[in-house]
Nucleic acid binder design. Sequence first.
DNA 1: TATATTAATCGTTAATTTACGATTAGAGGT
DNA 2: ACCTCTAATCGTAAATTAACGATTAATATA
Lengths: 95, 95
Amino acid sequence: MIKGFGLSGNELWLSRACKALGHPARLRILWELAQGDCMCGNLVRRLPLAQSTVSQHVKVLREAGLIIGSIEGAATNYRLDRNAVELLKQLMSEL
Amino acid sequence: MIKGFGLSGNELWLSRACKALGHPARLRILWELAQGDCMCGNLVRRLPLAQSTVSQHVKVLREAGLIIGSIEGAATNYRLDRNAVELLKQLMSEL
DNA sequence: TATATTAATCGTTAATTTACGATTAGAGGT
DNA sequence: ACCTCTAATCGTAAATTAACGATTAATATA
């Protein structure tokens, strides 16, 4: 049984994006990045979670394609993937 | 530790709504209801899942406030909560 | 009354998620 | 070389989720 549940590719993508945003810490991270790029460490400082936990949440957002990380020396700078966020808004508005 | 993760009430609601839509079967159900009201049984027939599983997914959407069920005799008619869906689109567009 | 039909709930198992501390590896600084 | 900082990864425990069949309760129909 293929697990598409009768959804189109875009809709499956939307579902995955929603899942990624379905945890308050991750929505918060997206919100922070919407205010501007942010070093990973700053995200950790702003959230009431352990470094490893934040790193895990960041990874979920990265793998969902919603954010992009660039290594800068020892640190990593994260930013929104604006295209993905626009697609998200677009697909959501079509519901 | 309060689990608000620094989000406003609306944002927490958005996060819960996203979580509810974060499963393809539930996004599909929302999509079906966006095409028009639907008896619970019809949803079951349209999804490749057991009745009890569909019922469970419907419950998640109901508890997230995205859909509304009205008992009609032995059956239950489901429809979108249009206000909630509009709020969802609105909050998402503000990201 | 007896029998379907409908949909919710129960009980259970398997899989996934969340959270943490510990460890690791690369960059920089002294 | 040595220590510090940063962020990813590992290992693990606890909690939650997803899926199913079985049961239940309420309605309809024969």
